[in-house]
Design a protein around this nucleic acid. Structure first.
Length: 372
DNA sequence: TGTAATAGGTTG
DNA sequence: CAACCTATTACA
């Protein structure tokens, strides 16, 4: 199922994107969902194809039933830029929901295909092969993006009203310290690890350090290393956030919770240690994920609509519902896929998360996302 | 005005 | 029937 990107090759632009541009039928046929869902390509198809190609390129496989091979593929290479410039059909998200097939989200984590090319740092792209990436242009944006991320990320709207767990109060976390709190979110902030009660046993995004470390792909680690190493450039400063500060009393270390903890797991010994990439066989704590996603979306001001489409390929309404009443995983059937994606997204490093979003978005023509 | 929440409908 | 989608409404 996974469909790796290796196959894809030159999709290029055969289908001229031109027409779509001119005729933005947002939703062509009145015929409902099924059409768009399964077949996907319609008018927007062409563009989409391209996009998806790229997306897949970066995010490679999402494990999705629908990854229809035909369409995507194509290593687009650096041509992308043009998309950006040229097309800007706007779809408004609210209504947007054309739901195209969409690239299987991110799953990147594994392998070495990491797009982030930070130029500077990357200068010495020792990333070597594996990563095709280099390519996508969005760099220029990224430029800004990254930079800002590093620097301005700091502001923290403490508002997070993440549902029930007020408990956290989350504190200022990094409050003062101007630097960024690394990517992995404040972990502890959300207290999941703390109480998690109900279903604490499953895989939860939390974790933070270790798990992350283990999951990071090679290149990520590089980043990490680099950053930790000090090196110059203020950008990535420490990815790990370990530096924290004394005062954040929220005992942030990963205590309980984290990786599949207890009961439930009796049988399969496999699990944990591994991490790495493919592990998604585990159960996901949907509630947790929902909360975290909610929080992240808020944090970065990512509208549900966008996230839903770009990352999950679902509609805003659906996402909203999922976030607000996540079903237990055990009770999930096919809906799991969606949660996996969310979970996946949570796992990735900011860069990726963002680029996934922005990218897709960009190509879709709607850049509503405030660039980060 | 832009978003999130929800009600209602469809589908595999 | 679960999982979605779409349209509509509610909220800031």
């Amino acid at each position: 199922m996974e469909l790796t990107m290796e196959n894809l090759h030159s999709v290029s632009s055969h289908s001229q994107a031109g027409d779509l541009m001119s005729s933005p039928h947002a939703r062509p046929s009145p015929s409902p969902s099924s059409a768009s869902r399964n077949l996907v390509s319609h008018a927007p198809g062409a563009r989409t194809a391209m996009v998806s190609g790229m997306a897949s390129l970066l995010e490679n496989s999402g494990g999705d039933y629908r990854t229809d091979p035909s369409a995507l593929s194509g290593h687009l290479h650096p041509s992308i830029s043009m998309c950006e410039t040229g097309m800007s059909l706007s779809n408004t998200y609210t209504t947007l929901t054309p739901l195209q097939h969409l690239p299987p989200i991110s799953t990147v984590s594994d392998k070495f295909s990491h797009p982030h090319t930070h130029h500077h740092a990357a200068a010495h792209q020792r990333l070597s092969a594996g990563n095709v990436s280099g390519s996508f242009t969005l760099m220029r944006d990224d430029h800004r993006g990254l930079a800002s991320m590093g620097n301005l990320y700091s502001h923290y709207p403490k508002e997070m009203s993440v549902s029930g767990m007020g408990h956290g109060s989350l504190s200022p976390l990094s409050s003062g310290l101007g630097s960024l709190h690394n990517s992995q979110q404040p972990l502890s902030a959300y207290g999941p690890s703390a109480h998690l009660s109900t279903e604490a046993k499953m895989l939860s995004p939390v974790s933070g350090f270790e798990s992350h470390a283990s999951m990071l792909s090679r290149s990520d680690q590089e980043h990490l290393a680099r950053s930790l190493g000090g090196h110059g450039h203020g950008m990535i400063s420490n990815l790990n956030g370990m530096h924290h500060h004394p005062h954040s009393h929220l005992h942030s270390q990963a205590n309980g919770a984290v990786m599949l903890g207890g009961r439930e797991r009796h049988g399969h010994g496999a699990g944990q240690g591994v991490a790495g990439s493919g592990m998604q066989a585990e159960e996901i704590n949907t509630k947790e994920v929902a909360q975290r996603i909610t929080a992240e979306l808020k944090r970065y001001s990512i509208p549900q609509a966008i996230f839903a489409q770009r990352i999950l390929s679902r509609s805003q309404g659906t996402l909203s519902d999922l976030l607000r009443n996540p079903k237990p995983w055990s009770k999930l059937k096919s809906g799991r896929e969606t949660f996996r994606r969310m979970w996946k997204w949570l796992q990735e490093p900011e860069f990726q998360r963002m680029s996934a979003l922005r990218l897709a978005d960009l190509f879709q023509g709607n850049h509503k996302l405030k660039l980060f």
